[in-house]
Amino acid sequence: MAVYTEVAFAEAAALLHDLNLGDLTELRGIQGGIENTNYFVTSEREGATLEHVLTVFERLSFEQLPFYLHLMKFLAGRGIPVPAPAANAKGEILLSVQGKPAAVVDRLRGKSDLAPGVAQCEAVGATLARMHLAGLDFPMSQPNLRGLPWWNETVPVVLPFLTPAQADLIRAELAYQNHVAQSPAYAALPRGPVHADLFRDNAMFENGELTGFFDFYFAGCDTFLFDIAVCLNDWCVLHDQDHDGSLDTPRSLALLTAYQAVRPLTAAERSLLPALLRAGALRFWISRLWDLHLPREAALLQPHDPSHFERVLRARVRDTHALAALLRDDALQSA
């Protein structure tokens, strides 16, 4: 959500007219994130104020984007609270800005809750399970582009920037994840479209109520358990500078219990949650290392600190056996 592509007011205004979204009144670049260019766009149409988000995609191609945009449209049509892409008169939702792919989607109400409690984690768990079930018959398919093949390609690129201890950890964990991915239990994991990046800043709340999930541009077809693990690693961890990456048990149980009430976990998912928690931590440690050490220029670029997910990964490795207690029936039922 950094600004790589400077969009002029007149250009954005013409785009909104093409989408029948009225007259542009405000265009504001969004700070945060590092993948795409994002703007808040406000317009007036027939006396009503409309709020949308304009995204110009910097890495994803015209060929890759239909999966993300049509997934959002599909989920919104199934009653899942996600932003729906706006279409022009031809019914097109994949647009072009300065020769780059772009989209305009609804802006969700409220704001992100960066200090979530049990109630917020319950809401996220239940809605995530509903989203997974709703996506089971989505007709399009695309792999998680930041999955295991990308980890295998990217770790050698970031290794020169690591200390010997960090290099040992990342190599060992990558080998472990390749081993897990070849196991029969992993092959048995339920799969479908997943968000794959459902952090606290990719959900909105208003008056304590979850209004939706957004930023689906890392989505892909992967295991539902990976999506759950990514959520647990962000929503249920302390984020102060002194944290050691450990999971907060009440919030973790709240998220898992709420999820399981909608879509019960399988035996394979219960057995592999500790491993997938490690996978989620590894994925974001790798990507943050990559973004920090191999950055692109941007007007509002703020790369995230990789050390956060290094600490999370070390905690997951340390607590692999203890984490299995989260999956006991009595623990989930008493949460």
Rank of each mutant, 00 (worst) to 15 (best):
W290H: 15
R270M: 00
L273E: 03
P250K: 12
I228H: 00
L256V: 03
A281E: 07
L277G: 05
D248T: 06
G245I: 08
P193N: 09
V237D: 15
Q177A: 02
A268W: 02
R200P: 06
D291F: 06
A196C: 02
C236N: 00
M204Q: 14
E269A: 04
D291E: 10
P295Q: 05
Q182A: 14
F218C: 15
G280N: 13
H243E: 04
G220S: 07
D197H: 10
D242Q: 08
Q177H: 01
F214Q: 05
E209N: 10
T249H: 00
L253M: 06
F214S: 07
R283K: 15
A281F: 01
N178A: 07
A281Q: 06
F213M: 09
F205A: 11
A298G: 09
W235Q: 06
Y217F: 14
S287C: 01
D291C: 01
T223S: 06
D244W: 08
S183Q: 13
F224H: 05
L247S: 14
A267P: 11
F218V: 15
A188T: 11
N178S: 06
G280K: 08
Q241F: 15
P274H: 04
R270D: 01
I286W: 08
R200I: 13
C236K: 04
S246Q: 01
D242Y: 07
Y217C: 07
H293D: 07
T223R: 05
V262S: 07
L273P: 01
H293F: 07
Q177K: 02
R278T: 11
L256T: 07
L253A: 07
D215Q: 11
L225Y: 02
W290M: 14
Q241W: 13
S287Y: 00
L289E: 12
P184D: 02
A196W: 06
G220M: 07
C221N: 13
E297V: 12
L189T: 07
L300N: 12
R263A: 13
G212N: 10
S271G: 01
L189A: 08
L256C: 03
L232G: 08
A196R: 04
L292G: 03
G245R: 00
Q260G: 15
W290L: 15
H195W: 10
A187D: 15
D215T: 09
S252W: 12
A185C: 12
D244L: 09
L294N: 03
D222E: 12
T257P: 00
A268V: 04
D248L: 05
I286T: 08
A254D: 03
N207E: 11
T257C: 03
L282Q: 01
R288I: 14
R251I: 04
P250E: 11
I228A: 05
L253E: 07
P184C: 08
A188Y: 02
L265C: 13
Q241V: 12
L294M: 01
R283T: 15
A298M: 08
A187V: 12
T223L: 00
L247Y: 06
A203S: 09
F224M: 09
L294T: 06
A279W: 13
A188G: 10
